[in-house]
């Protein structure tokens, strides 16, 4: 009997894990000019729509002391920057291509997206 219960909870937990991590709803934040991004266990907002051909200032503020998030990488814009803890770090980008561009932490564990329209 206990084996059936464990199996049942096991399956439910796996489904829950799948739903929790892979089926989250992502909101896109539309930004113009400046956008503040909080770095704390991830990026907030992590899906940002920015205008094409205009300079947008991304202001990162890291509140998470984990070494994983200490750097932010915007590979398509060739930026790798160290984010000083509890301070604002500004990165200016001027997208010359439309599309979706990933940004991530130094080790590629945490991700965010810039959508250039």
């Amino acid at each position: 009997m206990d084996k059936i219960i464990v199996s049942f909870f096991g399956v439910v937990s796996i489904l829950f894990t799948y739903w929790f991590f892979f089926m989250k709803r992502i909101d896109t934040v539309r930004a113009e000019g400046t956008v503040n991004i909080l770095v704390d266990g991830g990026y907030k907002p992590d899906r940002i729509s920015i205008p094409y051909g205009q300079t947008t200032k991304l202001v990162f503020k890291r509140k998470d002391s984990s070494a994983c998030l200490e750097e932010v990488v915007l590979a398509d814009f060739k930026v790798r920057k160290y984010l000083v803890l509890n301070e604002k770090t500004e990165i200016e980008i001027n997208p010359t291509k439309k599309g979706e561009f990933d940004f991530s932490c130094g080790m590629g564990m945490f991700h965010g997206k810039l959508i250039v329209k």
């Binding site: 929790f20 991590f21 266990g41 991830g42 907030k44 998470d64 002391s65 564990m109 945490f110």
Partner: peptide
């Protein structure tokens, strides 16, 4: 402590990592 802090704040974003 830092492991917990990092794990909890990423769980809030529904992200899982090493921690």
């Amino acid at each position: 402590y830092d492991l917990y802090k990092a794990a909890i704040s990423s769980l809030r974003h529904r992200i899982a990592n090493m921690d």
